[in-house]
Computed example of a mutant assay.
Amino acid sequence: MSGDPGQDREFIFEFVSVGDSVRVAAVDVETGIEVVVFGPIKTRQDDLQRLAARKLMRRLTQEGVTPESKTPRPGGRGVIV
């Protein structure tokens, strides 16, 4: 899909119903960085997935992970296993 925020990266998505909402966790496979978004249960899954991917790409940019480096900057939070 053109304009897909994570088209050159591999993400894992987890969808969990929480009452009238859906919790979507997105994890970047290379770095292990995770973000979470919530949305109404009636929202289309691909819309929530796209939102989570955009948030994850923003987080990766904030952490200094670029398409060239693909590793978190030194001193970043979390542990790479």
Rank of each mutant, 00 (worst) to 15 (best):
M1R: 14
M1L: 12
M1T: 14
M1H: 14
S2N: 13
S2K: 10
G3L: 15
G3S: 15
D4G: 04
D4H: 09
D4Y: 10
P5M: 10
G6A: 14
G6R: 09
G6T: 06
G6S: 08
D8Q: 09
R9D: 09
E10D: 08
E10A: 11
I12P: 00
F13M: 03
E14P: 01
V18A: 14
V18L: 14
G19P: 01
V22P: 09
V22W: 10
R23F: 08
R23N: 09
R23Y: 07
R23P: 03
A25V: 15
A26P: 10
D28S: 01
E30M: 12
E30H: 10
E30W: 02
T31H: 10
T31G: 12
T31V: 13
G32A: 06
G32I: 07
I33R: 04
I33V: 15
I33F: 02
E34M: 12
E34C: 10
E34T: 15
V35A: 04
V35H: 05
V36A: 02
V37P: 03
V37D: 07
V37H: 07
V37N: 06
G39E: 02
G39D: 02
G39I: 01
P40L: 07
I41M: 05
I41N: 03
K42W: 08
T43W: 08
R44F: 09
R44L: 12
Q45V: 13
D46Q: 12
D47Y: 10
D47L: 15
D47I: 14
D47A: 15
D47H: 06
L48H: 01
Q49T: 05
R50G: 01
L51I: 00
L51Y: 00
L51E: 04
A53H: 08
A53V: 09
A53K: 04
R54V: 00
R54H: 00
R54M: 01
R54L: 01
K55N: 07
K55V: 15
K55Y: 05
L56V: 10
L56Y: 12
M57E: 08
R58H: 12
R58D: 13
R59W: 02
R59C: 10
R59E: 14
L60T: 05
L60S: 02
L60H: 04
L60C: 05
T61H: 09
Q62P: 00
Q62R: 10
Q62V: 07
E63V: 14
E63N: 07
G64Q: 04
V65D: 01
T66A: 03
T66E: 03
T66K: 02
P67K: 01
E68Q: 14
E68H: 08
E68P: 02
S69Q: 06
S69Y: 01
S69R: 11
S69L: 13
S69D: 06
K70I: 05
K70V: 10
T71P: 00
P72L: 11
R73K: 13
R73N: 12
P74N: 04
G75I: 08
G76H: 09
G76N: 13
G76M: 08
R77F: 05
V79K: 04
V79I: 09
I80L: 06
I80P: 04
V81S: 13
V81Q: 15
